[in-house]
Simulated assay, not measured.
Amino acid sequence: MDLFSRSWAALRTAVDELSEQDWERPSGCAGWLVRDLVCHLVIDAQDVLITLVTPAEAEPTADSATYWDRVEPPTGEDPLDALIPRLAAAYGDPGLLAFHLDDVGSAAGRAAELADPDARVGTQGKVLTVADYLSAYVLEWTLHHLDLVAHLPSAAGPSAESLAAARALLERVGGGPIPAAFSDRDALLVGTGRRVRTDAESAALGGPTGRFPLALG
């Protein structure tokens, strides 16, 4: 749960440090600019808040790995994906979007710090402990931090601690390890299809029939 807070704080700090020009640059998410990704983060923060106040009495049906579903790789054409750029554009001034993320994001961070790690919550038809739910989001924050800085070479990326934890969780989701020759960053980018694999990387991952890349939702 501490890593949730640290990875989320690092991602929000990276947003705070965006220049005016950075908001219009492409992100690592197909079809989205940086401003669109930040708008998605607002929705993510809202989801965290909603989930943390949605208690469940049933036994857990998922953990931090099985929380994730495999989905089709994003193209930017899915109705919800396509809605995000329109929402982001509606803010007009990127400063308003940054303010909204800071407002809702801070609340999500505080709620996570106050939550009982052993409590059960319901989301997306699943029941998890708070600890597992927040651990799952370390992968979300770390991947989106990589997306945020994908075309911002001078921007700070996620911490080594977050990268290592996110890689370990991705390997659990995928059902096996990514070869040690991959750095944590490359394991996440290649393992989720965010970067095109070289022939050698593809072979190391088992070719087109291997476990990776994974698109998660």
Rank of each mutant, 00 (worst) to 15 (best):
V138G: 14
S159Q: 15
S154Y: 01
S183K: 02
D147E: 07
A181S: 14
P179G: 01
P177T: 02
L189S: 12
L139C: 06
P177C: 00
S183H: 03
E171V: 02
V130M: 09
L189V: 02
A131N: 04
A180I: 03
L128Q: 12
E171N: 06
L189M: 14
H144W: 08
T192V: 06
A136P: 01
S162A: 08
L146T: 04
G191K: 11
T142S: 15
S154K: 04
A164V: 10
E171W: 10
W141C: 15
A164W: 10
Y133I: 00
A150E: 10
D132N: 15
F182G: 09
Y137H: 15
V130E: 06
A180T: 07
A150R: 15
L139F: 02
D184L: 03
V138S: 12
L188A: 11
A165I: 09
P158H: 08
E161T: 14
L146H: 01
S183D: 05
L169Q: 13
P158L: 14
S162F: 07
G191W: 09
A187K: 06
E161F: 10
I178F: 04
E140D: 11
E140L: 11
A156S: 15
T192N: 04
T192G: 07
G157H: 06
S162L: 02
L134S: 02
R167M: 03
A165K: 06
G176P: 07
H151V: 05
G176Y: 09
R185A: 00
G157I: 07
S159H: 13
G176T: 11
G193A: 08
R185H: 02
A160K: 09
G175L: 03
Y133N: 01
L169K: 06
T192H: 06
I178C: 03
T142M: 15
G175Y: 02
A181T: 10
L169N: 14
G191N: 10
V149R: 14
L188S: 07
R185D: 00
L146C: 00
A150G: 10
G193F: 10
G175E: 00
S159W: 12
R167V: 04
R185K: 03
A131D: 11
A131Q: 05
V149T: 15
L189N: 10
G175V: 04
R172E: 12
S135D: 13
L152M: 07
G157C: 03
W141S: 15
R185Q: 04
A164P: 07
L169M: 07
E161I: 09
T192Q: 01
A168D: 06
D132S: 10
L163F: 12
L170H: 05
Y133L: 02
A187W: 07
A181W: 02
Y137V: 03
V130C: 12
A165E: 09
A136H: 06
A160W: 05
A168P: 01
H145Q: 14
V149C: 12
G191A: 08
W141R: 15
G174F: 01
Y133M: 00
R172S: 05
I178M: 03
